[in-house]
Structure formats: structure tokens, C-alpha cells
Design a protein around this nucleic acid. Sequence first.
DNA 1: GATGAATGAGCCTTCATTCAT
DNA 2: GATGAATGAAGGCTCATTCAT
Lengths: 219, 219, 219, 219
Amino acid sequence: MDQGLGVSSGRPALRKAEPGVRRRQLIAATVAVLARKGYAALTIADVARQAGLSAGIVIFHFSSKDALLAAVLTALAAEYRSHWVGALGRAGAAPAERLKTLLLADFDTHVFTPEKLAAWIAFWGEAQGRPVYEQICTAHDAERRARIEELCRALCAEGAYGHAPGLVVHALDSLGDGLWLALASGGTGHLGRVSAGDAQKTIMSALEAFFPRHYPPSG
Amino acid sequence: MDQGLGVSSGRPALRKAEPGVRRRQLIAATVAVLARKGYAALTIADVARQAGLSAGIVIFHFSSKDALLAAVLTALAAEYRSHWVGALGRAGAAPAERLKTLLLADFDTHVFTPEKLAAWIAFWGEAQGRPVYEQICTAHDAERRARIEELCRALCAEGAYGHAPGLVVHALDSLGDGLWLALASGGTGHLGRVSAGDAQKTIMSALEAFFPRHYPPSG
Amino acid sequence: MDQGLGVSSGRPALRKAEPGVRRRQLIAATVAVLARKGYAALTIADVARQAGLSAGIVIFHFSSKDALLAAVLTALAAEYRSHWVGALGRAGAAPAERLKTLLLADFDTHVFTPEKLAAWIAFWGEAQGRPVYEQICTAHDAERRARIEELCRALCAEGAYGHAPGLVVHALDSLGDGLWLALASGGTGHLGRVSAGDAQKTIMSALEAFFPRHYPPSG
Amino acid sequence: MDQGLGVSSGRPALRKAEPGVRRRQLIAATVAVLARKGYAALTIADVARQAGLSAGIVIFHFSSKDALLAAVLTALAAEYRSHWVGALGRAGAAPAERLKTLLLADFDTHVFTPEKLAAWIAFWGEAQGRPVYEQICTAHDAERRARIEELCRALCAEGAYGHAPGLVVHALDSLGDGLWLALASGGTGHLGRVSAGDAQKTIMSALEAFFPRHYPPSG
DNA sequence: GATGAATGAGCCTTCATTCAT
DNA sequence: GATGAATGAAGGCTCATTCAT
């Protein structure tokens, strides 16, 4: 359910909204602008217009454009983490199921809308030379990667595959990022227009290839 | 051999350089600034300073900042294509060798320096809403993808793997992009610091998983 | 005794303060900010923070920032006048004593704190082009100057000094202003750090020089 | 002769003016605006308009508004110093003549136009809390004050006046500042409109009072 | 070709003022 | 009376672009 950045923007401004609502509204508006115009072209005026508010209020709530963008990335990262943690919580105990759940969660279109994907990519592009952005992501990423690693090691041990688990982890993790890229940019990522479902099928085909005894090939 | 963007920047300006040299010099300077400051923060003045020239001359040679950036991306794409085309030309006739050659070529550190990778990522991040950038990449990418697809189909047919070739192509292509991301941003892409060699090993482990009869596992 | 601007600022806001208290509190806060940040950098938010109140209430009580500042200057001028008028009221009948009392009253540290001096100087600096400020001061100043002139003429007549009384008045009046400047800015006014006592001694040395028969040299 | 800040403003902009001319022109324009609108109300746009140039060029030459204002004060201080140093150079050897020359030099209307006086006062008003401004003035002031002190001590010794020389110095120095204030603000300084000639007469009357044997009373 | 002063559009940010609560 | 979110008008500053030299 959309509790995070899903505040629909464009509504008329209400005076005295309860605390936090304005921030969420402005963060959602920023994501929308980020997806539409990219990072470099985004202006505070765009965000304000998107939210149906004035430019002054953006600074009032976030102090600066930089702080707003950092808050947006933080919110995206928090929502991302809370999604995969939740999915893992609802998954069974079998490592194979858990790994599949974790990897496919990235392509749940209910949460990761094209807009949010585009916002992510925009941040990736600007992360170089902006240690702030890298730091915001790194903590969460490390946690998720550790889960993937645990599960891959469990599967490798159970299935006696002979893979170097580190490389498999690296491959599955990078594959996910690459698929997001392909999904978001539909062309820049070397591929034609693909859907989230295609990405999930691709993830599965990789799992089948790496761990055939745990994921019996469907084809 | 085409050294493309290899013109070292920062050298003192030479008067009366033959046409084309200045352009290459400025493109190399732009790549350097892109890697250091990212797309959004790049200014014409930065590029000029990096090249040891004046801001006016940048506009003189490229008409506008947008045109400069388009020229940079075009040059990167041309160099990229010429590299894999060349590698494929030097490879043998066996599909397995050709596929490996093609995929590993992306991580030849002689050509794809960290600086250039960073520049690529910067463009990816800004590609949304800038059809110009997508168009520049798409033509070349489609060509490379067609080669990968041919080779994968050949391997699938030869090895009777039962994979859906389309998914494998998608996986291998996206994996490459994800690895570039990991390589360039060392953390943002869900991963710790990795080397180009790690990326190549990871590619190989995927090839071994998808096509075990063609790439006998090394572990 | 009228303590004027002596309401200490920074205290927690009291609800339902009787009218006039809030105004005095805000005026005192403004003086404090004026002394700390100067005229140009003063903001309503600063004043409100200094008073422990909100920005809205400042406008509520004074209608506008300009009106607040005019009220502050008016209050300073009123307090200034009431001080020298009171001092003169307590002085004897002899012109020499009365002149000395009047001139030294400007340096009574009990009333003219460094904070208030700084606020005065800030207004002086901004008085050009702001006729409002000049008007507020002129009326009171003229009155005080008339007293000085009366007394100087009396002394000149009594002592047969041969001075042009107008020039002596001008000198004594300007000297007072110059000493305030030196006192307030401790360096900008051509002088090192000086105390109010030094200023009073300097005033006395001028009186001794101009009217030696009335103020027998102490040195 | 007016070499300092005397570049007349308002002239049409010439391309490629020799270096330093634009800076002087902009400093002169700033002085004019400072005199007309005061420190707080001065904007970069005002300065540019006064100089007949664009706002951008002000930043181009001075980096920031603060740096421009510091440059203006520095220029005023340098011109001030060079004026009294020059006057002293042209004066005779007698301390009495030298002191008179030094003190009256402050009121040479050829150099210290009403505009410049107003600019000085504006800086004095803002000097509190701006250590930059105080520092710029202090060095020069200390030097001038040392000269006054030397001369006063010489006169006191020669004339056996019995004054405390320190107080006389303080009085003469502060009197000068106070007279500038009176001159510049014509009312705020407790006085009606006065001329530079009045100020010089007032200075002379103080010298006559302090050192009657050196400056025989004219009245 | 090359330079760099100059312009002007547009952005971020500040801040006095308003007003619903 | 009092608060503080919200607005809107500037203002300082950046930067792509122009152009005289």
C-alpha cells in the first residue's frame, strides 16, 4: 500500500496541513519533476508548481534545494528498504523462496512506478562527486546485499553448484540495477521498451541458470 | 588505431591547431569535468579551464553547450562501438568465443577509464526527457544487441539449453550495464568497490551458468 | 523613574501582557539586534527571536518593520531627552554647572549602554535619505542645542572670553557626537577603545580650554 | 587633483576599457548610491544602473556585493589617507602649522564631497558587527592619530599649556568625526545645515582654545 | 582563431507581510 | 492576542552566449 511518497500532487493547497504532510507532498512533487525533467533541469519553481504551492514554502520546509533533494533520496531509500524488508517478512523460510522474493521485489510495479525509477536513475547519474547521495544509499544497499549473500551461500551449499558465491551475488545485484536502468530509460540501457514483468522473467532466468536445482527451468 | 578521446587535457593552448584537434581536446576536457563534477554542475567555464582555453572558444567550436554535450556523447558512443567492433573483428569464428569477446570488451580498462564510465553514467542519468541523448545511443546499442542475440541463439541451438534466448540476451545486456554502474559509482550500485577484472569474472560466471557446455566452469 | 527601554528581552513570552509592555519588550529586542547585527542585517525574525515571540506579533503591534524602527528611534530619542532634562532639573542654577551637567549626561553609562549607543549609530548611518529618522531627531536636538547655546552665551558674557559663541556650541555639540562614535565603534572613529569616563574627561578638557575661568584646569 | 574615486558615472559603457577603469567607475557609482539611498537599501542593480552597466558585470569585477562594499571602503580610506599625507607633505615644519593643516584637510571640499561623506557615515553605521569594515579603517586611522599625537605633544611642550595631551588628541579627533557627522546629515548630528567652512572655523576655534599661544584668537 | 569583458535571463534564497487557526 | 505556515516580491549570483578587439 502506498504510504510513502504517494501523496498525489497538484491538489489545491490547504492551510495548516498537519506536520509532515507538506514535506511528503513536496517530496512527491520533486519525484515527479525529477522523472519529467531530470536532475539538472529541476528547479524549485518546478517543484512548487507541481505541488500547487509557492517556491518560498519549499525553502521554508527544506531550507535549501540541496536539502530537499537529499530528503527525496532518503525517502526513496527508506521506502525501498521498507518494501523489500516487508516482502522478506511475508516470505517463507526456504532460502530459494526468500532469494526470489527479495530479487523480484525490486520490480513490484505497485511501488516502483516508472516515475520513481526515473528519479532513482537521476540520482545515480549525479551521485559522482556528491558523497551525500552515495552515503544515503550505501547503508541500505549494504544491508540488502548482505541478505542476498546469505541466501546465495545457503543455496550454493545446499545445491553443491560449485559457483563462487561472491560472483553470483555480484551478478544478481548488478543485474537488478541494469534491469532498472533498462526499465527506466527504455533504450539507453541497450534495450528496447521492456516491462517490469519482463525484468522479473529475466531475473528468474538468471536464477534458473545459477541455481537449476532450486529453480527448475520453466521453459 | 583511433585513440578517440585520448587527447590529454590541461595542456597549454596551442595556437592554430588544425581543425578537429580543438574539438577533441574540448571533448576530452568535458569528459573529465563530467567525471569530476557530474552533469548538472558542469559549466562551460569548467570545460574551458580544464582545456586551458577560454569560454568563448568552446561556443565557437560547438555553437552551444547542448551541442557540446551531444558531441561528447556521440564521440563516446562512436568510440564504444569502434572498440567492440574491432574486438569482434579480431576474435575467432566460434560463437562462444565471439560472445565472450563482445561482452568482456566493455571492461577493457585501456579504453573505458573510470573517467569515461563516469561520463556515461552522467548521461544515463540525464537521458530521461532528453530524447537527443537516447537517440544517439539507441542506434549503436541496437546493433550491438543484435550481435549478442545472434550469438546467444547460436549457442542455445548448439547446446540445447532450453533457455528463452530473449531473456538471456536481456540478462547479459543488463548485467553489463549494472556492472558499469557498480564500477563507476562504487557503492551506489548496491556494491562495494569493484574492479574491471571483477566485472569480467562476474560476466564469465554468468556465461558459465547460462551456457555450461560452452563455458566449462572454472571453479 | 522612566526606565524606558530597560525591559529585559529574551524572557519567555507572557500571555495577555497589558498593552505597552509588549511594545516595550519588542523595542528593547530591536535595540539588542540593532547593536548585534546592525541596521541592514536586522530582520523581523531576529527581533521576534530575541524577544522570544513570533514574527507575526511584531507586525501585529507595529504594523510594519519601518514603523517598528521609527518607534525604536522615537523611544531612544524620548529617553535621551528625558534623561538630560531630568539631569538639568537636578542641577543648580549656575550656567557653568548646568552646561557641564548637560554635556556629561550623554555619557551616563547607566542610561546609555553600549547597546543603545550602537543602535543610535546604526540609525545615524541610515538617516540619509530617510527623512523620517531625521525628523524624529531634529525636534529634540534643536531643544537641547538651544539650551547649550543659552549657557554658552551666558558663560561667554560672564567670562569675556572673546569666543564666537556659535562656534563653541558647534564644537561642543559635535564633540559629543564624535565621542559617542568613538565609544560605540572603538576604532572606526579614529580612536582606540575608550570608556565613557574617558569621554567625560575629554569633554571636561574642552570646557576647560574654552572657558578656563569657569572650569579651572584640573591638570 | 581627483584621481581616486572621481570617475564620473552615468557615461555610456565602453567595451574593453583598460583594466581598473571599470572598477573605479563601479566604486564611484557605489559611493553615489550609498549617499543617495544608504547602506541598507543599496542594491547591485542600483549600482549597475548608476554606472550605466549591467548587474552581472558588478559581480564579474568584484565577485560579490560584500567584496564590492569592502573595496569601496578601502578606496575611500586610501584616498583619505593620501589626501592628508599629501597635505602634510606640502605644509611647513612648524608643528602648529602642521596640526592645523592636518585637521583642516578633512574638510577640503574638493576631495570630501557631500557624497563621500555620506558614504563614510553609512559605513560607520554598519561597522558594528562587521569586523571587516573596522579593520579596513583602523590601520589608517591609527597612523593619522599618531601624527596628531606627536604634534599635540610638541605644542603642549612648547607652550606649557598644562593639558593632558591624550585628552586633547581625543578631543580633536572626535571633534573631526562629529563635524563630519554634522556636515553629512545636517540635522541628525544635533545641528542645522552647516558648511565645510563652518566646520573648519569650528576646528580653528578649538585649536585657539586649546593652544592660544600658537593660534592667536581671531575673534 | 582566440580572448574575456559584458549582457541578460533565470535561479535560489531571503524576508516582510498576510491570515487561518 | 499569538502562532507559524504560506505567499510574493525582490535581491544576489550564476552562467550560457555575444562580440569588440
